[in-house]
Design a binder for these strands. Structure first.
Lengths: 229, 229
DNA sequence: CGAGTTGCTGAGAGATTCCTGATAACCCGT
DNA sequence: ACGGGTTATCAGGAATCTCTCAGCAACTCG
């Protein structure tokens, strides 16, 4: 099975490295470039399955790059990255087909989830299943729905992202630092106590519906989502 | 099952790419050309199921292309594209048989809907069903009628398009950007708040007739049409 | 056992997101 | 030109979410 190829286009080296590292770790084959010209030639030669494209680039901007790539007859889905301020509206009109966009700063886990969602829809390549089921808990990633033994549970966006991250790493201990780095936005500079808070929120909502607690505390280390089987 | 073949004829590269990408994503096999001569030879050789034809073309115009194609004995339905300010009478003389026309700028979802409607009438190929039914809501796409548990509901054109888009992506969360880019005309440059407004309009009309709300808000993500089954 | 450390959770301030009524501009057919 | 329906914007307020903090509980280890 061929790995899924992702082309990352961003002029900030920090973001580029951040994305490259996490996406490789998530199992993708990554090629990262820093400007529009390289992006176009990389798209042409590398034939990626999806492109992560920063809209605000010096020189050739995201809009021109998109036009150019489309005009080459390549139907590669694009996940646009944009700052949350007013420039957000510039993205409007770009998401055709299965495209989508995300605002900076993003969370790394969310990036992976969105990539998989896009690939699932355009289904050019086989990717992860939309349903993530571990033990008594089931997540439908297309609908953002969470079920515990058949009962739907309503989670806030952050609660949902945290649960998804824990479940996709089930039976593996995750440190609070790891959780913070993957679930929260990369510029978050708060305390790790927030992870404790959100684990508490999730437990309060899920545990009344399960036979045994789903999230285990590994004291001094971190947390682990435990599958009972 | 063979994909349905669409021939796109437009001299503006942007529109050509926009249509190509969207229609391919919608499952069509697309061939795009930029002038009348290429259009005729492509129609002859490619044997498309339907042609999207811009009326205002430099050189050989839409009228001549249509005459030529018809004179070759090809009974291909044509969806004409025309600027809104252009006298629509010109086009009216062209639409024979199952033909139809749309004004630019159009919405991407509407283009797909029109193509399916034309193919449905010409019956040359099997296409989507005219009736779209999800949960308690049923849409007759040929008549543009909406029924909720048997009661007809009167929707404005935009309300109808939005509902159709949500329903054809039932049980999948759609971001406001995706909704705006598919339902509104491609040159719309307003705010995303308009999606909220129209969701509100639809809810006010549909919810009194349903057992539970049909459109769910996924806070921080977007909207989803929920089927109760 | 006792002290220190680590984790849990309720309360609450502040921020964000969403809903909806009001309104103006627009289009279209009469 | 008029009137009705439609589209798009805006602002106030409601609902929800985020994050922090503080006190308490639970655990560890000397």
């Amino acid at each position: 099975m061929e790995p899924i190829k992702v082309l990352v286009v961003d002029d900030e080296p920090n973001i580029r490295d951040l994305l490259s590292t996490s996406l490789r770790f998530a199992g993708f084959s990554v090629h990262a470039v820093g400007n529009g010209v390289d992006a176009i030639s990389a798209a042409e030669k590398g034939n990626p399955d999806i492109i992560l494209l920063d809209v605000q680039l010096p020189g050739l901007d995201g809009f021109s790059i998109t036009k150019k790539i489309r005009s080459m007859g390549m139907d590669i889905p694009i996940l646009f990255l944009t700052a949350k301020d007013q420039t957000e509206n510039k993205v409007l009109g770009l998401t055709v087909g299965g495209d989508d966009y995300m605002t900076k700063p993003f969370s790394l886990d969310e990036i992976v989830a969105r990539i998989n969602a896009i690939l699932r829809r355009s289904r050019q390549v086989e990717t992860e299943d939309a349903v993530l089921e571990v033990g008594e808990v089931r997540i439908n990633q297309d609908a953002h729905e969470v079920f515990v033994n058949g009962n739907e549970v309503d989670l806030s966006p952050t609660e949902y992202k945290l649960l998804r991250f824990l479940m996709s790493n089930a039976n593996r201990v995750l440190t609070k630092a790891q959780i913070l780095d993957h679930v929260w936005e990369y510029d978050f500079n708060g305390e790790m106590g927030i992870v404790e808070s959100y684990v508490s929120y999730i437990r309060k909502k899920l545990d009344p519906l399960t036979a045994e607690p789903v999230i285990q505390t590994k004291r001094g280390v971190g947390y682990m989502f435990k599958s009972t089987k």
